[in-house]
Every structure is written in structure tokens, then in C-alpha cells.
Write a protein that binds this DNA or RNA. Structure first.
Lengths: 146, 146
DNA sequence: CCAAATTCTTAATCTACATTAAGTTTTTTG
DNA sequence: CAAAAAACTTAATGTAGATTAAGAATTTGG
């Protein structure tokens, strides 16, 4: 086990040989593998080191691994933008794999409150990987809930 | 419309004001939005400029946009690794949103033939966002198909 | 400002995949 | 090597969300 959910100051793992995986656990305790990393790959949680990580990382074969600092500052200015994009994508994959339509909508609502009112329902549904009909129904259920 | 599916030498779009979106069309012609880009964001297809792009990008509000070259070489060595990771994630989100369990498995089989035999079915199912039971059934159907 | 197009909602029906359960095979370990 | 654990398969049943269809609300364009 190289990294557990919630750890701070996490590293980046350069795999020399063997095989690593990164994964999440959903609220039912079910694993959702986020990525495999065989020889030559670099894995890490795509969040800045000051934030608690959201992935577990462990080895599923005997492996030789270089553990590197995330070292955001030494990289050029664009690196910060890259990391941000990676982080968004990572969250997106996790949501698609492990969250229900309702949960994905609520996450979107919380994360992009501004965008919510600037695009059509149809587009939000498309972004969330569901039909506009499903989104419409879900929102009605949601109002009752509150 | 800033970028169409299949174009070469695509750019990166820095949004000064307005709102862009990137999206794919699946084989049924259905749109799957990949990402929204409001003010301050940078969008682009996460593939190197020499490959045909897999996203459409257009503006859904009147927008002011800087069109920048992807300029992979001028960035430091790590940039190439970042781009690769972004590309993998992008493909993953697209598959999760728009492909069936069977299609996702076939894509995995083609893309990671080596990994296929190095991890358990359970792990592959987890990576693909389905249950081991679904994967097992799907593989049986697949054998008959061939 | 009105007609046409598009979006949104609602509800009935359908289906891909999840869940559950049990038996079988493979792997691990003491 | 035996037995315990883990992985894999198969099949029955359940369900979230897709599809279809039709009407209502909103937006667009001449």
C-alpha cells in the first residue's frame, strides 16, 4: 500500500517494474479502480499536495517504484493548469463509475453553481451522462426531498 | 464552432469571456459533453496536435477566446507526460458516458492487451465500471460472437 | 409580435446491468 | 499437500435509468 484515502502531501510514483493501481471506495465500500500503472508509467492522485488525496494506491505485483515529490513549483507555469485539468477529469471518472444520477447532479450543482444557470438542462444531462428526461425527473424528486 | 471531430493540428482555447464546451457524438449521433469552459479556463482536445482530435468544441455564449498553439516542445519534459495522462482520462470519460459494457471491454482489450492477463477479472470489471458478473457474462456472449 | 423551433416535463414501457445466490475453479498458505 | 480463501461462472430476479411519446413552456427568427 503506497497511499491511503485522505492522506496529505502525497507523492507521485514512477513505476520501474511491476504493476500499481489507484482506486476509490464508494460509500458501499465497493472498489472502483481509477487507473493501472505498469512499467514506465507515473501514477499519483491528481490533486495538489496540500489537499487530502482521494485515491488509494497499492501494488498488485512485486514492484520497483521511484517515489517522487509532486514538486509543483519547479515545473513551469502551465503545469498548474495541467494539474487542475487532471483533477477535474479524475473527479469526473470517479463520479461516472461510482455515483448515481442523483449524486452526480448534486455534485455538479455544488461544484459549478454558476454554470448551472447558464446552460440548458439538456446540456447538463449530457455532461452528467444521463438523458434530459432522467434529469428532469430527478430534479422533481429532489424538490420533494428538501 | 472552433473545432470539429477529426481535425488535425488543433489548438488550445483560452477563454477570456463567455462559455465554450467540448463534446463528442456517439455512433447514434447523441451528444456527450466532455467539459464546460467558462472565463479563465483553457480547453482543448487532450491529444497531441499530430493526431486527429476526438472532440468538437464550440461556443454556447458570445465569447472572447485566445487561440493558442499546443506548443508541446516548448513546455518542459513533464508536459508530455501530463498530456498523455490527460488523453487517457479523456478517453476514459468518453467511454464511461457513451459506450456499453461490451464496448468498454473491447476497447480495454485492444488498448491494454498486456494488462488483460496480468490482473484479475474482478479488477478489470472495476476499472470498466461494471460488476465481475456482468463481465463474465459479456465475455461468454463475446466468444459466441466470434 | 406571431409562428416555428427548441426545450422541458410527465408518464408508460423497456432493457442493460446490478443484485443475489449457489456452485465451481483457482490460488494461497500453514 | 490439504483446506481455506479468493476468484470465477451461471442463472434468477430486481431496478435505475433509457426509450418512446405527447403535451406545455420557452426561445428564436422573420
Amino acid at each position: 500500500m503506497l497511499q491511503e484515502f485522505g492522506e496529505l502531501n502525497t507523492k507521485v510514483y514512477h513505476v520501474v517494474s511491476g504493476l500499481l493501481r489507484s482506486y476509490t471506495l464508494d460509500k458501499k465500500g465497493k472498489e472502483h479502480i481509477f487507473m493501472f500503472a505498469p512499467e514506465g508509467w507515473v501514477v499519483g492522485d491528481n490533486v495538489t499536495p496540500d489537499l487530502p488525496c482521494e485515491l488509494y494506491i497499492d501494488a498488485i505485483e512485486d514492484s520497483v517504484v521511484y517515489v517522487l515529490p509532486k514538486d509543483v513549483n519547479r515545473e513551469n507555469k502551465n503545469a498548474a493548469a495541467f494539474i487542475k485539468r487532471l483533477g477535474v477529469l479524475q473527479k469526473r471518472v470517479i463520479m461516472l463509475m461510482s455515483a448515481s444520477a442523483m449524486e452526480r447532479y448534486e455534485h455538479f450543482e455544488k461544484t459549478y453553481p454558476d454554470i448551472l444557470n447558464r446552460v440548458t438542462q439538456k446540456m447538463i444531462a449530457s455532461y452528467l451522462g444521463m438523458t434530459p428526461e432522467a434529469l428532469s425527473t430527478l430534479k422533481k424528486v429532489r424538490l420533494k426531498k428538501k
